[in-house]
Amino acid sequence: MKSSGKIETFDAVLREQYKYEFLIGKFLWILLMGISVLMMLIPYEANWKESLVHVTFFPAELGVFMYLRPYMIVQDKGKQVSIYQKLKWTPVSRKEIRLSRVKYLSAFCFKFFVASMLLQQMTSFVGGSFGIGSLLYPIIFWLLIWLIGIGYIYSLK
């Protein structure tokens, strides 16, 4: 399904009118994703038994939620309301809204996947512990993060 561009226009105004919420989200996801990406400096092949390596997952997942949340939920009259509810009686379909959020999520995860992949390969080569795990770890890591993000997008009504 091709996007009509309407939801992107809506989102541009949403970011403007909910500047504060997007700013808070941005501050938090920069912090969380920064932690997560930096922890990719731990060579996976040499340290896969260490729980620290796996704990990296949680700040990354939280970071994705912080990024997506202002696009999914708005605070309105003291309540948290899904963006689908605000657009349910307009010419944009729920499918189109979800598609736009999936695009944002995918672009977001891809950037950090690339950074993670580069850092992980670099640290593995330098540390002499390069192996198949070094390659697979960032791929599986970001695939899982992406899938959980997809679940979040599709879970809201």
Partner: peptide, 22 residues
């Protein structure tokens, strides 16, 4: 029951929703 942004002004709602209509 219409779903406008109640914390926003009428003008702000128009800016939000205008792009959604042809």
């Amino acid at each position: 029951e219409q779903q406008f942004f109640m914390d926003k002004t009428a003008g702000e709602n128009v800016k939000l929703y205008a792009g959604v209509y042809d």
